[in-house]
Simulated assay, not measured.
Amino acid sequence: MNFKLVLWLLWAGFIAYILLLAPPFHLDKTLTLLKNIFTLHWTSINPIILSLFSLVGIWLLIYSSLLFIDGRMQSIRFWPFAIASVGSGVLGLLPYLALREPNQQFSGQKDAFLDLLDSRFYGIVLTLSTIVLLVYGIAFGDWGDYVQQFQSDRFINGMSLAFCLFYVLFPTVVGDDMARRRFPNAQVFLAVVFVPLLGSLAYLCLRPPLLLSTISEQTFIANRSISTR
């Protein structure tokens, strides 16, 4: 089956699950949770829920460090999907993964934003933040309460599954990023793929800088469009 079709089916299937099969949606409870998160009233939130919410954000930042660079060489840009992902998580990301074409090059110069996303400093900050969140959630969280909320609350249920989908989908983009950097090490790839979250973060900390192509971005996109006709 065509891989793009698989991604579209996954996107549609996740939407169908959330709407038809997930636990009930409690609007007041969800709004209260979000209000407490954004107003820093964290003592009233189960640390597992708070950590999970934050780790979904970490996943978005991990993907951003690859896909804003990838989007430079695509006929579509990543930024609209990044904005959609802030509000919808993996549902905003999946359409980009389905629409993008494989590419293992980067052309032109990196601006300050891409330079930050490409830096090891970015990966180190995300890694340290993740370790703090994991320790906080595991050490202080109420697992019984989390399981009860997972089974009874659509927002918590969907957020938890989205976290898992971010992990499952990461191999669809990391291979191109490795090739873009001339880093085709199978053992490293397996470590990134099979170690949830921390493997991806280790990759951001250890990957070499981008190798820049001498061809222009517009020429690359135009040539690929012609070749795919």
Rank of each mutant, 00 (worst) to 15 (best):
L61F: 04
R100L: 14
G71Q: 03
I69C: 01
F78C: 06
W42N: 03
I37A: 04
W79G: 00
F78I: 04
L66M: 12
K35I: 05
I58G: 11
L93P: 03
T43Q: 11
A84G: 13
G57I: 03
L94P: 07
M73G: 09
I62W: 02
V86R: 02
G71S: 07
T43M: 07
I69L: 11
L67N: 04
G92V: 07
S44T: 12
F81T: 02
T30S: 13
L34G: 06
I76D: 08
L61S: 08
N46I: 01
N36H: 07
L34N: 07
F53K: 02
L60V: 04
L31H: 12
L50G: 02
F38Y: 15
I37G: 02
T32W: 10
N36K: 05
F78L: 07
G57Y: 04
A82E: 00
M73L: 15
I76Q: 10
G92L: 08
T43A: 15
V86I: 15
Y63A: 06
I45W: 02
S75I: 10
I69T: 05
S85D: 01
S88A: 14
I48Y: 08
G57M: 05
L93V: 04
W59G: 05
R100E: 13
I45R: 00
W79T: 00
F68K: 00
L50Y: 05
N36G: 00
L94A: 07
P80Y: 10
L50D: 02
R72H: 06
L66C: 10
I83L: 14
L55Q: 14
S75L: 11
T39Y: 02
D70V: 03
S65F: 02
L94V: 15
F81H: 09
I49P: 00
P95T: 13
N36V: 01
T43I: 10
N46D: 03
W79A: 00
I58H: 09
I69A: 00
I48G: 01
L33F: 13
Y63K: 08
L60G: 12
A84V: 09
S44P: 00
F68R: 01
L93G: 01
F81C: 03
L91F: 12
F53T: 09
L94D: 08
N36D: 14
A84C: 14
W42H: 10
V90G: 10
G71T: 02
S54M: 13
S75T: 15
L40A: 15
G92D: 08
F81V: 04
I83R: 01
P80L: 11
T43Y: 10
Y96V: 07
M73I: 07
A98G: 14
L99F: 14
L97V: 14
I76R: 13
L91W: 09
A82M: 05
S65M: 05
N46P: 01
L67V: 06
Y96N: 06
G89P: 08
T39Q: 09
I58V: 15
W42M: 03
L33P: 01
L66V: 11
Y63T: 05
M73Y: 04
S54C: 15
A98W: 06
R100C: 12
L67Q: 05
R72T: 12
G87A: 13
H41M: 02
F53C: 03
F53E: 04
I48R: 00
W42P: 02
I69H: 02
M73W: 03
A84W: 13
R100V: 11
R72D: 06
L60S: 11
I37V: 15
